[in-house]
């Protein structure tokens, strides 16, 4: 497995990823910097692959 570039208690480097948003039914983008600006917590939930259990 790749060595993490993050650590508990340390700041996570800002990132952005493309998304599909089921609420709007369209594509979007998530930005950690924007979540921080909005004063929001972020929960990232990784899973191996679509069409399998999560």
């Amino acid at each position: 497995m790749s060595k993490p570039k993050v650590g508990l208690g340390r700041e996570v480097k800002d990132f952005e990823i493309n998304t599909f948003d089921p609420k709007t039914g369209g594509f979007g983008r998530f930005s950690l910097a924007e979540a921080k600006e909005a004063g929001k917590w972020t929960v990232l939930f990784f899973y191996p692959a679509d069409f399998t259990f999560v």
């Binding site: 340390r10 700041e11 996570v12 917590w41």
Partner: peptide, 17 residues
């Protein structure tokens, strides 16, 4: 593929869990 990882980041951008 990615393993089943869960990460909680606070509003300051610090990894808490």
């Amino acid at each position: 593929l990615c393993l089943r990882g869960t990460f909680i980041i606070n509003p300051q951008g610090v990894l808490m869990n």
